[in-house]
């Protein structure tokens, strides 16, 4: 059996990586895989699962959403693990919400199970818990291992945590920490040797859900965290959500363009955005091929240079 940094046996978790980590955010998947054993986790990746629906199927066809997520939970349970690990805020909320519905209503669970069985999916008993990677390493054993794994440190890099929405709210479905005063990302940044940069918009929306349908409104939302983090002197931002990452990283150029149109004196943002697994990965000395910073739209070079200096 493989072992973690301190020699203890690895904890096996079912790993649901979701759409983004399979597609445009492959760097999230590679860095998570490389990091996992160092923080005591053995990932059992779910192969035959689908998208969680990203809140969109929940909105468009709620009963289908419930069944798709029940199917993911069922395959997670079938691995024999008690934990289904996610690396995305939106997956976390969608799966936890479906799980809560099924765990608290026997009749509903029975109907959904009958449908799952009809198409050849193993039935779901309601026993698995959905947890984001962040929660597994922000406290307890995972946190202790993280402190050891992050041996290279971050040399006081000034990091602004960005939580996004659906890992905090609604807290009755998430509930890991106080949604108005979260602490988990801060704890991790400090454990890695970074300096925490605080700012009010860290718990607000990145605009991603409406970035296509209502670009103007979304960009105004996106502006707040990036501008506040820069004003507070951040070298980089870190997020536990690949959708927030996409918004903060890939849409930053659009934000700059739209700000320039409104204010000719706008100073362009060049804020590097790191996935949670990448930030820890840097401190833990992961390879460039695992961190894959080349896939980012906003260059991460200034961060790497600062760490090498």
């Amino acid at each position: 059996m493989s072992a973690a940094t301190n020699g203890t046996a690895l904890r096996k978790v079912a790993y649901y990586k979701g759409c983004l980590a399979s597609l445009s955010a492959k760097e999230l998947d590679t860095s998570t895989r490389a990091l996992a054993p160092k923080v005591g986790l053995e990932l059992d990746e779910l192969e035959s699962v689908t998208c969680c629906g990203a809140g969109d199927i929940h909105e468009a066809e709620p009963d289908y959403y419930l069944h798709l997520n029940a199917r993911i939970l069922a395959y997670g349970e079938a691995t024999g693990s008690d934990t289904l690990m996610t690396v995305c805020n939106v997956c976390t909320l969608n799966l936890r919400q479906a799980n809560h519905m099924l765990q608290n209503d026997e009749a509903l669970l029975a109907r959904v199970n009958a449908n799952l069985e009809a198409v050849g999916v193993p039935p779901y008993s309601g026993a698995i818990e959905v947890k984001h990677l962040l929660w597994l390493i922000a406290e307890g054993e995972g946190y202790e291992l993280l402190k050891q794994a992050a041996h290279k440190g971050l040399k006081g890099l000034r990091v602004a945590p960005f939580y996004g929405c659906q890992i905090l709210r609604p807290s009755k479905l998430l509930g890991f920490e106080d949604p108005d005063r979260p602490w988990s990302l801060e704890a991790i940044i400090e454990a890695c040797g970074g300096e925490v940069v605080d700012y009010p918009a860290k718990i607000k929306c990145c605009g991603f859900p409406i970035i296509q349908a209502r670009e103007e409104t979304a960009l105004r939302e996106l502006m707040q965290p990036i501008a506040q983090a820069r004003d507070a002197g951040a070298d980089a931002m870190v997020t536990p959500c690949p959708l927030c990452h996409l918004s903060l990283d890939a849409w930053q150029s659009k934000l700059n363009a739209s700000e320039r149109r409104e204010n000719p004196r706008h100073e362009d943002f060049h804020m590097p955005i790191l996935h949670l697994s990448q930030l820890i990965g840097v401190a833990a000395g992961l390879e460039a091929s695992e961190l894959k910073f080349k896939r980012h739209v906003v260059s991460v070079k200034p961060v790497l240079e600062k760490l090498e200096a």
């Binding site: 066809e61 709620p62 009963d63 419930l66 199917r71 608290n104 209503d105 509903l108 009809a118 198409v119």
Partner: peptide
């Protein structure tokens, strides 16, 4: 499997808001 599930779900007709108010939650 996911495709077949959608067919079943559609037959069971819990469309629209009805699909949202399932379960104790």
């Amino acid at each position: 499997e996911a495709r077949a599930l959608r067919d079943i779900v559609q037959q069971q007709g819990r469309e629209g808001a009805l699909g949202h108010v399932q379960g104790e939650r």
